[in-house]
Each structure stands twice: as structure tokens, then as C-alpha cells.
Write a protein that binds this DNA or RNA. Sequence first.
DNA 1: TTGTACGCGTTATCAT
DNA 2: ATGATAACGCGTACAA
Lengths: 344, 344
Amino acid sequence: MARITLHDVAMEAGVSDSTVSRALRGLDKVDEGTREKVKDVAKKLRFSFSRNASSLASGKTMRVALLFSDALNTWFDSSVLQGAYEVLSPAGYDIIPSTVSTHQQLDSFLDRLPFDGNVDGVIVSSINLDEKQTGILKKLTIPVVGLDSRTIDGFDASVLLDDDKAMDDAVGLLKNLGHSRIAFVGWPVPGDFRFSTMLRAEAFVRAAKRLGFDDKLVGHVELGKMSDYRTLDDALSVAAAQLLASVPRPTAVCVEADAFAVPLMAELKRFGVRIPEDMSVIGFDDTDVAAAVNMTTVHQNPLGMSRLAARKILTLMQDETPDDPHSVLKPMLMLRQTTGPARE
Amino acid sequence: MARITLHDVAMEAGVSDSTVSRALRGLDKVDEGTREKVKDVAKKLRFSFSRNASSLASGKTMRVALLFSDALNTWFDSSVLQGAYEVLSPAGYDIIPSTVSTHQQLDSFLDRLPFDGNVDGVIVSSINLDEKQTGILKKLTIPVVGLDSRTIDGFDASVLLDDDKAMDDAVGLLKNLGHSRIAFVGWPVPGDFRFSTMLRAEAFVRAAKRLGFDDKLVGHVELGKMSDYRTLDDALSVAAAQLLASVPRPTAVCVEADAFAVPLMAELKRFGVRIPEDMSVIGFDDTDVAAAVNMTTVHQNPLGMSRLAARKILTLMQDETPDDPHSVLKPMLMLRQTTGPARE
DNA sequence: TTGTACGCGTTATCAT
DNA sequence: ATGATAACGCGTACAA
């Protein structure tokens, strides 16, 4: 079966190519009678536009790229995909996901600028760019919106979470529960992008300072890259060891992500640490797992965030400016069973 | 910044368009000297191919579509996305996800055949087609591979799970633990695709029959569509009620999916049902949540399945035939803490 | 309202 | 080994 082209439809309907084009795209200046006829023929022939040809002729690709720094089957990234799909697909856009896991990959990605001319817009998720990289972005002719990025520099619009607010809530809860020795536990980052874990750690430290914690009693367990470990279990052992070896031992910890916090709790329990009696634990994300094990955690809503980002890029792609280009969303602390009063 | 075309590179390098095309694509019959020069110029000018134009001229789009019946941020679907991306992306292909949630959507999707000419291949995930639909697929000129589908009809290749083996294991375990009153609990399906839950239910019944269970003691809690309920909690209440109202009450259940089994267990516990003392529970999927709550479940590996499917479509797209077009994978029963001996 | 003709950026065929 | 030239399928001024 050879491909059915617009021309085939035109022949069959006895009109010109341009008429078919206009009729099928719903443009005015076409007789309703002929439009119906054309539509019928098109349906009969199972005609569908070649997006390639359309793009080439019109300059619009009807595609937007999604760039991630982690796997697509990650809680955050998959939600972003779904959210973007929900708003972009009805508008006629395809979404094209890609991932980069190292700065080198990111550089070569930006270097080749595979976006320009191939997509109408880009959503960059959970990636923080340095100056040189944002410089490249700025040269792009298509809109770029940042999602969960550190800065808004280089982005035409952005959606990010108020990390400071999140940590203020978390650390505030711990303070009110009487804790004085607290720590932040990062998680081994995928690829070699260090920023996001550093960001939350820094926000944690700032919050602790703001709330009057003694510097010397505020810890930070840093785990480096996932590739430094054979398995996640190894990383868990290291994290647990660091925690249990701290003198004085923290009575409460905030963990970078639920996905790490949950198995870490299991590991700690293996060593006789009761939660929350001996140690309070606060996660980050509020994934299904957190709810399943009743963990106190900071809720964020990647689905909503990406819908918002998608709406922004949609308006940007039609050459308009979003009323509020750069949004900062408030996280919510979910109080559950893994936090309790500090023990004496 | 106007787009930089192959022609620009040709001008700058002082050669013809065709030479640039050949040089950059690594074809032979081009002097290594000029190739280097062209490459340098291309890099300097930040040239990248317009996929649209390439596709139009060559007929290859370098894109494959992924069709799902559920949300993209679902455990299964997001894993499929990632797996497909891992093998397709290095081969130079973009992936384009879409979802259909009703038969009507599916029909209109297939009716318009937005695939032909726009992508080089399609992976259809967790969707079972009727005869008319497979008929349409067969007319496609591009390869179509099925993933987690019921039949292999209409697909050039497929990857699916051995549901019967899974249920044999699960039901066998329950039998050996002394259970005689058992039930299958479906979950409210997203959209209106009913098949998959029916499939597992039927496999469950077959397994029970094969293993000598008394027909009258084998139950089936069916929940219909998600849209029949206001919230998931409502569906959970209904499921729990059905279970607790059954006379005789089953002492063990197999649940369609972990994502439903976990909150269902919580609901049952609220009503004083101890697990596994009063009731054994076996899930399906082996998601993170299942591991987190130590639930016995049937493990499946969508990541691996989709990698396999992607490899098949890759060989199909280069007009070769996979050695084993239709694979049936074995699930694994993960024995954990939610199953125990039948109580007297 | 409809048709004609050209261009979009690349690949492929045919010369040279 | 390299260069012209004709497609590829559609959009869009412009003409009718």
C-alpha cells in the first residue's frame, strides 16, 4: 500500500490540491459543499497528513521536546510526561522525550541543537544549566521553558518548587517536636548532575539556620553518584552507617526523596532504630510508596507542574506571552507516622 | 537567527549540497579531507539536520510511535517508555507516545492511521484489538509490535507475559498453604478497556480449576470502570465490602495489581482483618510499593519486555525478521509476608 | 471560491 | 569523488 497523499484525495474528489488542503484544515473561503465532499473522500481513502511535509512547508513541526536528566520511568519524569501530554496532545502536538545523564551529553545535545527546526518548543525538566548552556538556549528561536530548574535564566518561562518553603516546613516541624540534632540525607544522584540534591541540602541548612538550630548539630549525609555504588543497597548501607556513626546521633532526618527514604527506614530498622521513637524521618515527593508506609513527607505535584509548563509553552508557541511566565509553587507537608517527639 | 541549512554549510565549505549530505552521513565515496572540512564547518555553524526534510526525501522518519491505553505515568507504561527509549534512541529513533482510553478513541486513531508515513513503526502496549482493528493494522506498511497484548494476531512481533503460569504459581502457593476458599479481585480499569483485567481473572479461574479447587469456592470481585467511582477510595470500599460480605469468606485473594492491592490491604486492616493471619494477599506486578510493604506478588519486568519489543521493531524496521517474533515471558512469584497458612 | 506555481531542506539518481 | 537535478508532500502567495 503506497502512502495516500493529499494529491490522491484531490484527484478522487475532482478538485485541486490546495482546495483539499484548505478544506481539511478547516480554513474559510471554501464552499461547504466541496468541503464535505473532500472530507468524505479523505475518510474513504484513510488519508492523513504527512507531518513532515506539513512541517517543511509551514515551518511548524507540531512537536515539542521534553528533556530529562533521569530515567523516564521515574516518578517525577513520568508524571511530567503525562502532564505535558494531557495539554499538548489535544492541541495537536506530539511530545518527544529525551534524556541526558551527564554534562557532556547535555553539552553535545545543546551543541548540535537538535531542536531548532525539529520541534516548536522545549521543556527542560530538572536540569540546571550553567551560563554557557543558558547562552546557547537564548540563541534558540523556539521557546524553552524550565521545569524544576534552579534558575530561571535562559528560560522564556518556568515552573519551580519553593524549596525553601518546603524545608522551612519540614525543619519547623522537627523543631516544634523538640529535635535539636538533625540531618539532611541526600541520595546518590543518577548520572552526574549534582545540583538538585545540593539545592535541597542547601535549603535545609538555610532553614535550620533561620530557625535557630546550632550549626554544629546540623548534619549532611552526602552520597555522591549512583555509579559510585554497585547497588542501591550499598548506598543504603553507607547512608545508614553515616547516620548511626554520627556523634551526636541525629534524632531526625530529612531525606532527599521518598524513593530513598523508604528503603533507608527499612535499613535503619534492621539495626534496631525505631521510627519515630528513636528517629524521625521526613521524605520528599509524596509518592505512592510514602503513602503506603505512612511516611511524613513533603508533597509536590509534578503532574500539575508540567501541565502548567505545557500551558506556558503553548502560549509561547503562538507568540504570546504568558501572564505569569515564572511560577513558584508551594509544596505541602504531609504529616504522617514517621515523625514524633524527640526522645530525651 | 534563521535556521542553518545544509546549503549554508555547503557554501561555507565551498562544496556542493550533496557532498555535505554524504560527508555528514558518513557515506563512503567522499574524500576524507573534504569530509573533515565539512564536519568542521558544520560544527562551527551548529548545523543539524532537519528531520522533516530528511524524512520527506528518504521516506524514513526515524520515529516510532508508542500507543498506550493508560496514563504515561503509570508503573507499567512509564517503564515501557524508558525501555523503548533505551534501545531506540541510540539507534537514532525518536519515540512518540500517545494514549487512547476508549474503544472509540482507538477506532478513530486507527481510522486516521496517523502512523503511516509519520513513523517507521508502532509499539502497541497493553491494548487488545478486535478483528476489525487487527485488520486495519495488517494493512499498515510499517511494522507493528504488540506488548502485553492478548493475541498476537495483527502484530508482526509481540512480547507478552505468561498469565497462566503466573496464576498457576499464585494459586498453587495458596493451595499448598491450605487455602480452599479463594478469590480474584480485579481493579477498576482506566478508560473502558476491560480485557486485561478479564484476562487475569480468567487465568485465575483456569488455574483454580486445574489445581482442583471447588468451583463454588472460587470468587471473583469485579469492579468495572474507574469512572464508575468518585474516587479510588470508593472503589476500595466496594472491594473490601464484597470480600467481607462473601459467604464463605475467602481466606486468600489474588489482586489484579499491586497498586490496588496495597491500599486494599490497608482498607481490610481498618476492618480488623489481619494479613496474612485472616487473609492472604497476593499482588501482581512487583512494584516498589509491593516491596516496601513486603507483599507477596507476581513479578513482571516491563522494562525488559519493552527493550525486547524495541529490539524486535528495530530489526523489523530494517526489513529483517526477528529470529523469535513472538516471545512469551515467564513471570516470577515473589514470596513475602502477606501470605500464610489458611486459618482453620 | 478555486487553481497554479513555487518553495521548504533534504535524499537519491544520474552525470561528470 | 563530486556536482547538478529531480523528487518527497504539503502550504501559501498569487492569479483567475
